[in-house]
């Protein structure tokens, strides 16, 4: 009788039903750890100089970043000396108000630990950096970090 025909025995297929679960788990991990860049760059991404004697910046909430490099918009010229604060191209004169605004967001006690990170392009000129530095000193933002890549140790 055909009803009792012996079933063919073959290798059972590996159950892949839980594969999506595993992948989703990974997905959620990366979704949570992803930090999208908060500021959109108005300048071309600076090619950071490389150095070996570097320190990691801790406490991201206490770091305010100043970008220096070539503006994407042609009307600002092609020199690598444009300064970007928040979302706008700015001048050194705007640096103090930028720092003061950043200070409002943190508690009083943390102000001395605030660090300014300068992300400048290799071809920026020292003059621009100095202008920023003088302005930073005026508002007593004394902790400074020149952002670099990790270079080869030689």
């Amino acid at each position: 009788m055909s009803k009792f025909k012996k079933k063919k025995k073959g290798m059972p297929a590996v159950n892949t039903a839980s594969l999506p679960d595993i992948v989703f788990m990974l997905l959620f991990f990366f979704m949570v750890t992803t930090t999208m860049r908060e500021t959109s760059l108005q300048i071309e991404a600076p090619r950071l100089p490389s150095a070996t004697e570097i320190k990691k910046l801790e406490h991201k909430s206490l770091v305010s970043t100043i970008y220096v490099g070539k503006a994407k918009d042609q009307k600002y010229g092609t020199a690598y000396n444009r300064i970007q604060l928040n979302d706008k191209i700015a001048t050194p004169e705007d640096v103090p108000s930028f720092i003061l605004r950043a200070r409002e967001e943190v508690s009083e006690g943390e102000i001395p630990f605030m660090t300014t990170s300068i992300k400048a392009d290799k071809e920026s000129s020292v003059g621009t950096i100095t202008d920023i530095r003088i302005k930073l000193r005026d508002v007593n933002a004394l902790k400074l970090s020149y952002s670099t890549q990790t270079g080869a140790d030689n």
């Binding site: 992803t34 910046l57 400074l144």
Partner: peptide, 24 residues
């Protein structure tokens, strides 16, 4: 989706040469 987030994730920590400016 996973690959998209893998690519957009930036885990790099900002590091650089730190400097203490002198007071005015």
């Amino acid at each position: 989706l996973l690959i998209f987030f893998l690519v957009t994730t930036t885990m790099n920590v900002d590091s650089g040469i730190s400097k203490k400016l002198s007071e005015k």
